[in-house]
Design a binder for these strands. Structure first.
Lengths: 142, 142
DNA sequence: CTTCGTGCAAATTATTTGCATGGCA
DNA sequence: TGCCATGCAAATAATTTGCACGAAG
């Protein structure tokens, strides 16, 4: 299927390479590093350059279609441009989306702490995911 | 003054370079990039190598004396190793410490979202700081 | 047709590592 | 004295940029 770009992207040209990249990274729950994306796109669009991948990832981020997230010195591209947070399993390295926590309490806390205006935030939670917890129990029990 | 290292650092040797680095980066409200630290340490300890700065920053992080924070593709070292969050002014680039927000509501939210265990988190708030807001008002008024 | 996107290689930037030597414990 | 830390230079890793050419609008 052809992914139709929207208003925000008026200034960008529709190319085979961009469509291939978009088809790989766009979507909920997708978190890939630049190299992973490069490898995956290779299959759909052999001969594509790494620089092209980086250039497109950047413009897709600028357009708000995807976003770049950095945690623990590792960067990955999140297929969803809408604001949300992340959970990173320190055991298996898996990344999961988490909706942003919002509350009146948090807002008043921030207003008190930061005298200025907060526009957005980026949070990453670190811990052990459900699967890895299960894995541990299994080892202990057996 | 000589900064005395504690238990956590038993395995590290006390050197002039380490003390110089520590005297530059250790403390609340200090947020510097590796290059800034390198430049500042030069003055106290001329001839120190950039690699030494990086090596010491890493071991100080491992020891929990300081911590590395990355936001918007920029990394800086936070002079305080205790967990807390940050506010970054997108206008002037200033970074401020913010205590971590904790609440029962947030905990139950996270438990519901992430079926695993959360051990820590890293949050960066983006916005306009008090000073830059004032600056804007002044421009509009005048 | 004109302008922008692409591929490739070279350039940057940030950080790490190998090695011989010097200095803490 | 023994071993870890340092300085320097070279090595990596991740990302960006210059340039000539091909393709989108």
């Amino acid at each position: 299927m052809r992914i139709v770009l929207n208003k925000k992207d008026m200034n960008m040209r529709q190319t085979r390479q961009k469509e291939a990249i978009l088809s790989v990274v766009h979507g909920e729950g997708i978190h890939m590093t630049a190299e992973e994306i490069f490898a995956a796109v290779q299959e759909k669009e052999p001969g594509i350059g790494l620089a092209t991948v980086y250039r497109n990832l950047k413009s897709l981020c600028d357009a708000g279609i995807i976003q770049k997230v950095t945690a623990e010195d590792r960067s990955f591209y999140d297929g969803c441009g809408d604001p949300h947070d992340h959970f990173l399993c320190t055991e298996c390295g898996k990344i999961e989306d988490v909706p942003s926590f919002e509350s009146r309490e948090l807002n008043s806390f921030l207003t008190k702490q930061i005298r200025g205006k907060v526009h957005r935030h980026a949070s990453v939670y670190f811990g052990i995911c459900e699967d890895c917890l299960g894995e541990r129990d299994r080892k202990i029990t057996s």
